[in-house]
Design a protein around this nucleic acid. Sequence first.
DNA 1: GAAAATCCGGAACACGTTTTCCTGACTGAA
DNA 2: TTCAGTCAGGAAAACGTGTTCCGGATTTTC
Lengths: 332, 332
Amino acid sequence: MASRGPSLPRITDVAALAGVSTSTASKALNDTGQLREETRERVRRAAEQLGFTPDSRGRALSSGRSYTVGLITTDSSGRFSIPIMLGAEDALSAGEMALVLCDTRDDPLREQHYLRSLVSRRVDGIIVTGRRTEPREPIDVPIPVVYAFSPSTDPADTSVIVDDHGGASSAVQHLLSLGRRRIAHITGPASHRSALSRAAATVESAGDALVGEPMHGEWSERWGRHAVDVLLRSGTEVDAISCGSDQIARGVCDRLRELGRSVPDDLAVTGYDNWSVMALASRPPLTTVDLELEELGRHTAQLLLEAIAGSPHRGLVELPTRLVTRESTLGT
Amino acid sequence: MASRGPSLPRITDVAALAGVSTSTASKALNDTGQLREETRERVRRAAEQLGFTPDSRGRALSSGRSYTVGLITTDSSGRFSIPIMLGAEDALSAGEMALVLCDTRDDPLREQHYLRSLVSRRVDGIIVTGRRTEPREPIDVPIPVVYAFSPSTDPADTSVIVDDHGGASSAVQHLLSLGRRRIAHITGPASHRSALSRAAATVESAGDALVGEPMHGEWSERWGRHAVDVLLRSGTEVDAISCGSDQIARGVCDRLRELGRSVPDDLAVTGYDNWSVMALASRPPLTTVDLELEELGRHTAQLLLEAIAGSPHRGLVELPTRLVTRESTLGT
DNA sequence: GAAAATCCGGAACACGTTTTCCTGACTGAA
DNA sequence: TTCAGTCAGGAAAACGTGTTCCGGATTTTC
């Protein structure tokens, strides 16, 4: 339509310059067919000279694939989905696949809109991710889909999630291995699956060493500070606090310091998420559980690629977390 | 190739079902050409019945456009580029454009790779964004480009940036309007343009009310705390501190509280960035300057769309910031 | 009733690549 | 010399859509 300046060279231009047909040019550039090495070289030089870059739209049309995958996220803030996205993008770009981003902002209408758009683009596959670990309604598209972080409610779908149970356990094991025997657990709202599963794992791993019930509140520093007040006011003896998030743990540390309790000498504290802004800025820096979200993103992309290739891996995949030890349990 | 199940309906299927030719079907669905309303309706019903979604690859090929724009970011952590990205994506999705994500991780090789990939996809345009406000080398592609946050070193390129001068000024004006007349400035490293420009604006706006020189350090809470020690130890009287970032401001507030100084009664504190994790969690919550990055992303996308449409807006566009007032200057 | 204007829909091609099939030339063996 | 076999490369179709042009049918006008 509006031909802006000299448009990019096409393969016919390359072919013309090399004095061959387009099909020969194609074969030369893709290392297929039967051609003399000299011919290949001639075509390659012509392509080089013209700065030819194949138009992937043509290729997409002819190959039936678009070499594109869509990523649908409901998490506009991006705390969790961003690292997943980057990991996925990393894994995909190695295979010359591009990732198109769709942020639904938790709006079902927008989600529908994006799904139509992705299907219309004939995306090779879709990654669906969210802010919470609660399972979500599967999406209905005739394309391979892998769910990341928020699994699908349909167990026949492919979902990659974090092993929250193992993560919480590893924190408790760490505390136990340090000799702590009076462990409290402060975490997020009981309405959140992540809080519940971490709490359950903590209870199970701590056994007799658990002090009281898991304390549920908001995912905030304020709740961490407040919970410390409640905990200490109750008079129960405590030598460690495992927290359901780094934010809570930071609040806990702040409050303990204000009350003159030493971390980790008097009380060891563990966080969860390894959210560097919190974990590193906390005084002292937090021992915490890294969710390895970027790896989760990579793994998700990998599974999606396999599904696209025709061998889908159905069901739930739980990826391990990694315990990061810092001064809040080890001292300096 | 690997025909997975019943492939999606094509426009020929719709045409066949409606008993018309593909061209008629195309016209009916796109509201072009001259057709009887009854025919259009028949085609529409056929499309509906088959769940037809046009293959945008075909459309892309025939229209010469790909209805896709690329976003290149060097900022893998995403503090700044994520909101920009989301804003851009928001503005683009309204126009049925998709955004493909490319995270270069500050690696020139990766950047080259992505550029080739985007050109090969015949992207309609490219948005380039980064982590810092320092100008960056322009990219060399035969496609419209708009730079966001990090402007291009070439003034003939289109760049959208934050009005840092105005932002810092607004914070100082606010402090002055509250009657503060002894204002210190604590900010990031002098090697960062953002720190320098904010400092310059602060010096200019504060005039006689400025206390001492701008204090440069790292962008961290720790530096904020340390700077307070240095400042107060020097014995100079101070009734307000304007900080170059929310992280620094939070550190400042923490330290002041520890030293028994009341914020804002003894000293008012302002931050910069309106990074909610810091600004809201700080005690007290921070009055700060919102960079309106999402709006910046939207505006960038808008300019890119105009450039794609053929009327590029060359040069630098500075977008205003927004002062957000909270307890760190206003009290409760 | 015939010529002109209008309306509707189809055939053909373009977009850029890959791939399948085919042809002509050359080689070597019988 | 002839025949089979190999090799190098070209012609054409396919992918799915949009668009341009054109012809037939219907209506209008004199």
